[in-house]
Design a protein around this nucleic acid. Structure first.
Lengths: 140, 140
DNA sequence: AAATATTATTTGTATGTACAAACAATATTT
DNA sequence: AAATATTGTTTGTACATACAAATAATATTT
């Protein structure tokens, strides 16, 4: 993945994918201080901030499919960061002690991520860009 | 992946990934008339427009890593759309007859993709958004 | 000319994500 | 109350992508 001009850079599919790959890399880089990659860090952040949250709600928050969320939770369970409790047909997800202790570090990494891209892109531009992208996802 | 408001929608990492997933889905949907998913269709388009192109250049055009490009080419070779010719340490990639015949259909799908999102988002907005996203990828 | 560095490509392996089908529990209709 | 539909979650399987290491060819230095 290189930063050269592509003939296809006027295609939204292309640009969106390229940005996503770059952002994921930067994000993983910042979350490295937590020992987790982005998705897992976000998952933990969400569960820490609402212990007992259900997979469905997590999937809305994370904008991922339920099956993906199940997979993420499973991994975090194995690594002893999360616990599941089945309640009827639903599942409640709780953070372990280990996850709770990591929370500040995760918030810190998240703040660093924000600072990093908004420094490079400019605060105003990155805010606007994020808003526009969000608007697009809502419309599409 | 649902269109609900997420607490994290002000994070560029989040928004960018969400957009990428949605765009990929739309794109695959449009390219369905070619019998290929987006990446393969783009690969074929690129090779059709420059027969003998080398993987490195493809990886720049597609903004993907060389290893990913190798994998894509391999698959298209199996499906009889592409052929590789080793020349020294480089590789030249050529379209087969089958690939050449598919070219108009691919261009058509690509045009449909463009029309689809620019109708939904508005021509001006989508043009600006694409440009801004591209600008961001260059800076990051 | 031999030794070393660089470049292009591929291979082994791993990750994140999704779809479709299965399952299991609850709610609704008859 | 039984039959049916809906909802929440998980499982089987597949795909796109990447990183790091391996390989192979060429270029540069000594």
């Amino acid at each position: 993945m290189r930063k050269e001009k592509s003939k296809y850079c006027t295609c939204l599919y292309y640009s969106a994918n390229a940005l996503s790959r770059i952002m994921t890399k930067i994000s993983d880089d910042e979350f490295a201080i937590t020992g987790l990659s982005s998705s897992y860090a976000f998952l933990l952040m969400i569960v820490n901030e609402k212990p007992g949250i259900q997979p469905t709600e997590i999937s809305h928050q994370m904008q991922l499919t339920p099956s993906t969320v199940t997979r993420l939770i499973e991994k975090m369970e194995h690594r002893n960061y999360l616990e599941r409790k089945t309640v009827g047909r639903t599942t409640e997800v709780y953070p372990t002690k280990q996850a709770k202790e990591l929370h500040p570090k995760i918030r810190e990494a998240w703040a660093n991520l924000y600072n990093r891209y908004s420094t490079v892109l400019g605060k105003e531009f990155s805010k606007q860009l994020t808003a526009d992208i969000y608007k697009a996802t809502q419309k599409l």
